[in-house]
């Protein structure tokens, strides 16, 4: 299968979902889905690389921590990211975020994501063995 992302319905906020052949790929796609809440990912050029690390007691918390780490860096550095390289080993995640400084006129951000919630949060494999990582994000 080709890794993919999508959004799902939530009344006040929005659900994000990433699917991949591995958990790491699903996490990468979930990050693209979150970026797509803000702007079109293809508008963001991978000019700068930022490293992040997370550690959590289970894979659901690891997903929430991963998404919240991206939001933290976006907010603190005033950047947007569109390409993600994730490595998961055990309960640890290491990643490189590729993106650039936010330029409102060019990126036309729609809305800021305030946080990844634990609502509809799941990291699981489907019958075909593909990984699905999802949650609702607060906007």
């Amino acid at each position: 299968m080709t890794p993919k992302w999508e959004h799902f319905e939530h009344q006040a906020d929005i659900g994000i979902r990433g699917t991949g052949r591995t958990m790491a790929e699903a996490f990468e796609q979930a990050a693209v889905a979150m970026t797509a809440v803000i702007t079109r990912p293809d508008r963001i050029l991978p000019r700068v690389a930022i490293r992040v690390q997370c550690e959590a007691p289970d894979r659901e918390l690891l997903l929430a921590d991963w998404l919240n780490a991206i939001l933290r860096e976006m907010s603190a550095l005033r950047m947007l990211f569109s390409r993600f390289e994730v490595t998961v080993s055990g309960n640890k995640l290491e990643a490189v975020l590729h993106g650039e400084l936010l330029e409102p006129a060019r990126h036309e951000p729609t809305v800021e994501v305030k946080g990844a919630t634990y609502f509809k949060l799941s990291v699981a494999q489907d019958e075909a063995g593909n990984w699905i990582a999802q949650c609702v994000v607060d906007v």
Binding site: S75, G115, Y118
Partner: peptide, 30 residues
């Protein structure tokens, strides 16, 4: 703004991990 979002993020996580110490079962993490 970002400060409030970060405070909420960090303490939501901390409450999930520490609630069981106080005998509180976390059925819905939110």
């Amino acid at each position: 703004r970002g400060l409030g979002h970060q405070v909420a993020t960090e303490f939501s996580r901390r409450m999930i991990l520490e609630a069981p110490q106080y005998g509180i079962q976390v059925t819905d993490r939110e």
